[in-house]
């Protein structure tokens, strides 16, 4: 493999992983923007979608339909959590909501351990995820390419939704100043439910590709996505949707890049390098790479 191919391969890998990370971060930030809630149960939405794939995947239903149902389940679960767990504590402090999200996360994980299995189960995925095609000497994974394209597409659609539709504009307004948004007649419950629905939708889509990569689903399958989403969101700026996307791509690039450039003896410490860089960024830009409007206005 020559250098050019290595570089191209790296770019594809980085963009594909970064795209997934960006979607994860976005799902977290869209709720945080409105409720100031870091929803740590977000990873369990990925898990729910994953278990749906597991249960229906082996049956006679075509995979695409199973995929749609799985994303639907993630959305439903997200809405349900909002209604049952988070709405009652919405007026409480940010800490209360944070703890609630941890509780929900633990509850769902343990439910999976009890009712499914403590072990990871193999999921039937379309062969598509493990196939490649050749471009010159470059072998490109169809799964990676698909996650790259789908994440870009979704980011585009989401941007349109947030800028062009009333609900989208209300969402952004609520993120900037929730009280004012309500004063002009936007219904709080509707805006918040929309945010949770989008968050669940993103988690569901992420789950399709994430589990397509892994080939298995277990009770802790969501722990990496939620951690990555959180770190990406913090680096990018918790107040900004653009920031979350930038943070996601940055983290994906760092993860893949460091694995390639670090010498063998330092590879074990790759995570440490990733987080050291993250800390450096935060040192110079404590609010993250992109500052949200709310923050800048108030300073």
């Amino acid at each position: 493999m020559n250098v050019l191919q290595e570089v191209l391969q790296f770019i594809i890998n980085a963009l594909s992983l970064g795209g997934l990370y960006a979607l994860m971060a976005l799902g977290l930030v869209i709720v945080y923007g409105i409720l100031r809630l870091v929803n740590f149960a977000y990873g369990e939405l990925v898990m729910v979608a994953g278990y749906t794939l597991l249960m229906l995947g082996a049956g006679p239903i075509p995979w695409l339909i199973v995929a749609v149902i799985s994303v639907g389940m993630a959305v439903l679960t997200s809405l349900l959590l909002e209604r049952v767990a988070f709405r009652p504590v919405r007026q409480a402090s940010a800490t209360t909501m944070l703890i609630t999200s941890f509780a929900v996360s633990a509850l769902l994980q343990n439910a999976a351990i009890l009712f499914v299995s403590p072990r990871a189960k193999a999921v039937v995925t379309p062969s598509f995820f493990t196939e490649n095609f050749q471009v010159g000497n470059l072998l490109i994974s169809k799964g990676n390419l698909a996650s790259l394209v789908v994440s870009l597409l979704l980011l585009g659609l989401l941007t349109l939704f947030l800028r062009r539709t009333l609900l989208g504009i209300a969402l952004r307004a609520a993120a900037d100043d929730f009280v004012m948004t309500r004063l002009v007649g936007i219904r709080a419950n509707q805006v918040i439910a929309t945010a949770f629905a989008i968050s669940g939708f993103l988690a569901g889509v992420v789950a399709l590709f994430w589990i397509g990569r892994l080939g298995s689903v277990g009770p802790f399958v969501g722990s990496t996505p939620v951690l990555v989403a959180f770190v990406a969101a913090v680096v990018g700026g918790m107040e900004s949707l653009t920031g979350a996307v930038i943070g996601g791509y940055l983290l994906g690039t760092l993860t893949v890049g460091l694995q390639l450039v670090l010498p063998q003896s330092l590879l074990d410490y790759r995570q440490a390098f990733v987080f050291a860089i993250v800390l450096l960024v935060l040192l110079f830009r404590p609010q993250g790479l992109v500052r949200g409007r709310a923050v800048t206005e108030r300073v």
């Binding site: 493999m1 290595e6 391969q9 790296f10 890998n13 992983l17 072998l139 990676n144 994430w210 990569r213 892994l214 990496t224 993860t255 893949v256 694995q259 390639l260 063998q264 590879l267 074990d268 790759r270 995570q271």
Partner: peptide, 19 residues
């Protein structure tokens, strides 16, 4: 080569093997 459990992305290791 090495990997760390929990990383869940092993594209770099794979790339090194292919190289």
């Amino acid at each position: 080569d090495t990997f760390t459990a929990g990383d869940q992305d092993f594209s770099a290791q794979v790339q090194r093997i292919k190289g």
